[in-house]
Amino acid sequence: MAVMVEYIITFTSSHHALKAEQVLNEAGWKPRLIASPRAISSQCGFCLLLADNNECALSEILTTLSVSYTHLYTRQSINGVRHYAQQD
């Protein structure tokens, strides 16, 4: 059984989150704006969720597109429990 890894990007403001969503959509990524999970601290209360992407490529694209973010997390469901790990 394959484990699906999702990526969560947090921001300092909702403006940055919305701008990042727009930029990533235009670049062909499919981010979803969600409320920040309780297990993750986000200053603005929103974050972007990206399903099963390559973390290295994601970090590079965020830098290339000049996306201002605070942290990058992975999220995995293990036995029905969501686990978060900060990647930066």
Rank of each mutant, 00 (worst) to 15 (best):
Q76D: 04
V3A: 02
T70W: 02
M4T: 15
D88S: 05
V23M: 12
F46P: 03
V81G: 00
Y7Q: 14
I61R: 13
C44W: 10
P37F: 05
L72G: 01
F46G: 01
S59T: 14
C47K: 05
M1H: 10
S68W: 04
L48D: 02
H71D: 15
N79Q: 12
Q86N: 05
S13P: 03
N53C: 10
S41H: 14
Y69D: 03
A17I: 02
I34G: 00
A39E: 13
E60G: 07
Y69A: 04
I9C: 02
V67Y: 01
S77D: 03
Q86L: 11
L33N: 07
S41D: 06
V23L: 14
S41Y: 13
D88Q: 10
S41L: 11
N25W: 03
S66P: 00
M1P: 06
L18V: 08
A35F: 12
A51V: 09
Y73H: 07
L24D: 02
G80Y: 07
K30N: 10
A85K: 14
T70G: 00
L62T: 09
A51Y: 00
S14H: 10
Y7K: 07
S68G: 04
N54H: 09
R75Q: 12
V23K: 15
G45L: 05
V5Y: 05
A51W: 03
A57D: 14
L72I: 14
T63G: 02
Q87T: 13
L33Q: 09
L72H: 01
Q22W: 09
C47V: 12
E26D: 08
H15T: 15
T64S: 10
A17F: 02
L48Y: 03
I34A: 01
I61Q: 13
K30V: 12
T64G: 00
Q22R: 15
A2H: 09
Q76C: 12
A85W: 03
C47P: 03
Q76K: 15
R82E: 10
P37G: 07
Q22D: 08
N79G: 12
A17W: 03
T12H: 11
M1S: 11
